[in-house]
Amino acid sequence: MRKRVLVAGLCVVAALAGGCATDPPPRAPGLQGTTTSLPLPENARMLESSVATPPAPDCGDPTASLSPDPNATGPAIDRIRKRGRLIVGLDTGSNLMSYRDTATGRITGFDVDIAREIARDLLGDPDLVDYRILSSAEREKALQDSTVDIVAKTMSITCARREKVDFSSEYFRAQQRVLVVRGSDIRSAADLAGRRVCIVEGTTSLLRMREVQPSASILTVPSWADCLVVLQQQQVDAVSTDDTILAGLASQDPYLELVGPSLGSEPYGIGIRQGSDELVRFVNATLERIRSDGTWTALYEKYLRVLGPTPSPPTPNYRE
């Protein structure tokens, strides 16, 4: 009898102890269920399609610049000569025009060499150049704030920009086109309706795309190299800008091709701070020199041969 009580008591104790021990152990954390898509470049964003573009102001022929003068002097030129270096605003993501040479780490390209020619005339040595990295949207402000002396960065001359900055004479004429992955069903800008297109913010390419194909959804990024990244990561279907830049992107990826006719032409000029007329005249003199002494043709052949046979340099247009 007593034994049975003891056994019962032990059972109760065992049950209590067992009850404590069989508490379910904490579970291993489950998967969070987050999306596993690749990241986007910094400051990439989808553009609101409803934003209306302001009508372009009319200033006659925007490419009309001041007549060249190799002996021009003034405060802007004095400042550069006193510093001993020409500060050039550009970016490193526009292959062929301005990019970072992976082997040397130096910034090079068609635009860069034009800037170096200006430094050669201004300071006697093409190496006396210092670069400031600008996104396309920062170009005008950098000139207005005098952060840079000149901008040599595939900058199209437009009436809207002329309200804020001055331009040299036209030194190159590019055509806006469309870059897609080989085998894509996009053959021209008309096929971009409802598709995703990468364009850099603050460019004339963006304005024109909204004009010719308003139903394309646009992803904006800080630099053209970022457009190649999102195209390779399959986050957009196409990139649209000047053939100079697109050819530079296509040359880094054999799976890409330029398609469709030109959407419009883009006259490139060297951006200069407003009111620095003597610098405009001086830069125009340098541009005159490289047009006539064969430097322009040599630079075209060095960087832009992928665009086709070497054309003659654009004819400058002077208003006074």
Partner: peptide, 17 residues
């Protein structure tokens, strides 16, 4: 970078971001 394509810098920027 090794194949001489400047777009490497853009990939680096994305990774760093």
């Amino acid at each position: 970078n090794r194949t001489g394509h400047p777009v490497g810098a853009a990939y680096l920027g994305e990774a760093s971001h």
